[in-house]
């Protein structure tokens, strides 16, 4: 659906050029929810703005729906933008228009719909996002979550194939964030719209996305299905983002196994395995004891997962590890994994 090839983007700054994106290759499939995560200044906004050409790349090519659009202009550019909806962190609603007027705006622009048709479509869109009773209100009379729903309805008005969301939930409280993410997933399911979701929160990715790319200083440092990237982060930048979403950094801390007199392993159970008493059974069978050193349990979208770092000791540790693997558990020997050095982040003092 979207393909970026060798994208670079630099901005002229006071002290020379600022390289915001440095050789990006990405392919986003039709109908998926693709997450792009990175810390502040990583280049996320610049990247997403390239897709609808709010920003022109310095180098490289942009393809949308198989068509090269890198230097689209005039009517072609406007057509492209109509096929790509965009949702913004700060909503960017027209304060002079009502909720219905905001949603009608993109329809009015095309000049091809009559009043009645616009009214019908607006009503349907507002019903979809659950704002029918607020149609006549002005944006300032709405809560943040409601404003973002207007933003989503507006972005869907021209029946786009792609929805770009730049930090769409970053200005919202956790509960509202959940509701807006649910709405996006529902839209993805019902309409088959491809969604590109930009965020700096791993939680948003975990709950919403199929695949994710991690952006760090203008480069994609890691990319893949969310289950892989979230449970087995490789790059230091990814690790940092995962740790931020976990109390105490979850089970990601390297453990000095020798200090514990056992074999430290990280066990990852996903899907059905997460709900079965595998660890206990195998420990019994092999006369092995285990101490849980760290862990995290939850869901990646609908898939349950459990990940523990345990120290195994006793009769047949090797047999236990083989047994766990045979039961579909992912076992990583901790000592054998060179974990990237992490600087300890200072806690926020309230």
């Amino acid at each position: 659906m979207i393909r970026l090839e060798g994208i670079t983007k630099s901005f002229a700054g006071k002290e020379g050029a600022v390289v915001a994106l440095d050789g990006i290759d990405l392919t986003i499939a039709k109908g998926e929810i693709f997450g792009i995560i990175g810390s502040s200044g990583a280049g996320k906004s610049t990247l997403v703005r390239l897709i609808n050409l709010l920003e022109r790349p310095t180098g490289g090519e942009v393809f949308v729906a198989g068509e090269r659009v890198t230097d689209a202009k005039g009517e072609r550019l406007r057509d492209l933008r109509r096929s790509i909806g965009m949702v913004f962190q700060h909503f960017n609603l027209l304060s002079a228009r009502t909720v219905a007027g905001n949603v009608a705006y993109p329809l009015e622009l095309t000049g091809q719909y009559g009043r009645v048709e616009i009214a019908e479509r607006v009503a349907a869109l507002l019903a979809r996002v659950g704002l029918s009773e607020h149609a006549k209100k002005y944006p300032r009379q709405l809560s943040g979550g409601q404003k973002q729903r207007v933003g989503i309805a507006r972005a869907l008005a021209s029946e786009p194939q792609v929805l770009l969301c730049d930090e769409a939930t970053s200005a919202l409280d956790p509960q509202t964030t959940g509701a807006v993410l649910d709405l996006l997933r529902q839209i993805n399911r019902d309409l088959g719209v491809t969604i590109v979701l930009i965020t700096h929160e791993m939680d948003v990715i975990r709950r919403t996305c199929d695949r994710v790319a991690v952006l760090d200083r203008g480069r994609v440092v890691e990319e893949g299905p969310v289950t892989d990237v979230f449970l087995h982060p490789r790059h230091a930048a990814t690790l940092r983002l995962v740790r931020e979403a976990e109390p105490d950094g979850g089970s990601l801390d390297a453990v000095a196994a020798s200090d514990l007199g056992g074999r430290a392993v990280r066990l990852t159970f996903t899907g059905a395995a997460a709900h079965q008493p595998i660890l206990g059974r195998i420990a019994c069978e092999n006369l092995v004891d285990y101490a849980i050193l760290a862990g995290r349990v939850g869901h990646i979208r609908e898939t349950p997962y459990a990940q523990f770092t345990v120290s195994l000791s006793g009769r047949d540790v090797a047999g236990a590890i083989a047994g766990l693997r045979a039961s579909g558990v992912d076992v990583e020997l901790q000592a054998g994994i060179p974990l990237p050095q992490l600087e300890e982040r200072p806690r926020h003092v309230v």
């Binding site: 609808n52 709010l54 406007r78 057509d79 933008r81 109509r82 790509i84 909806g85 965009m86 913004f88 700060h90 960017n92 609603l93 027209l94 705006y105 993109p106 622009l109 095309t110 507006r154 972005a155 021209s158």
Partner: peptide, 12 residues
Amino acid sequence: GIIEASLAMGAS
């Protein structure tokens, strides 16, 4: 942001 949103929606 409003100008940007308008352009992103395909406005001239």
